[in-house]
């Protein structure tokens, strides 16, 4: 079957910045706001999403020839729910305290628009290699978005990164008056709104630079 659509490398590169799932496609906002009160939580969530997206994309791509139009959402949902259950159990077994902190947000990956969207747009139409590259690219983009938000929130909210883990990194001096609002819901909303504005501004500047006559 000839490769229609973007190549694996294109899918990979696009997913990181140009088609970033959070900043450009505005998908997957729920975990972006919820788990970014710490860098450790953000990294764990990114890892879980990478696992689920990769496996779901590969499986969907392998059976793409057999999918009937009106059954495909059902099949996507079944696949994603299975892999999310597996990811949830693995986290509970090996990093129990982090699993408890992330709480209901790991199972909420099932309804994360990113994964269903990638299955629909890419995996159901292209081969496993492309689907896998797309999954990895989008996951890296998602991880970048989560990291950008969580670094800002944790730094201003507690003055250190990766608090509570062995790799705690004190960045701001100890007499930093912790901006507690940053680790609370209002801080999440406002920070994401401002970063989104920043991303939009950067994208429009880049576009206008490209379009400037040489």
């Amino acid at each position: 079957m000839p490769t229609e659509g973007p190549t694996p490398l294109e899918r990979f590169v696009r997913g990181i910045l140009p088609e970033n799932p959070v900043y450009r496609q505005l998908l997957g906002m729920c975990p972006t706001l919820a788990v970014t009160n710490g860098v450790a939580q953000a990294l764990t969530m990114s890892g879980a999403v990478l696992f689920v997206l990769f496996c779901a994309n590969i499986i969907t791509s392998l059976i793409r020839g057999l999918l009937k139009p009106h059954l495909r959402i059902l099949v996507f949902t079944l696949t994603i729910a299975t892999f999310v259950t597996i990811a949830d159990r693995i986290l509970a077994a090996y990093v129990y305290s982090m699993s408890k902190e992330l709480g209901p947000y790991i199972p909420l990956i099932i309804v994360n628009c990113i994964i269903i969207c990638r299955c629909e747009v890419c995996a159901s139409k292209q081969g496993p290699l492309t689907a896998g590259a797309d999954a990895i690219g989008q996951s890296i983009g998602f991880a970048l978005a989560l990291l950008s938000l969580s670094i800002v929130r944790e730094l201003l909210g507690t003055g250190a990164l990766l608090t509570g883990t062995a790799l705690e990194l004190r960045v701001l001096p100890t007499n930093w008056p912790n901006w507690v609002v940053m680790v609370l819901p209002p801080g999440a909303f406002i920070t994401l709104g401002l970063l989104l504005g920043l991303a939009n501004w950067a994208a429009s500047r880049l576009a206008s630079l490209k379009n400037r006559p040489a």
């Binding site: 709104g193 989104l196 939009n200």
Partner: peptide, 11 residues
């Protein structure tokens, strides 16, 4: 311009 839509809604 850059805050229109989702940005200002989140703030």
């Amino acid at each position: 311009e850059s805050l229109r839509g989702a940005g200002i809604t989140l703030i």
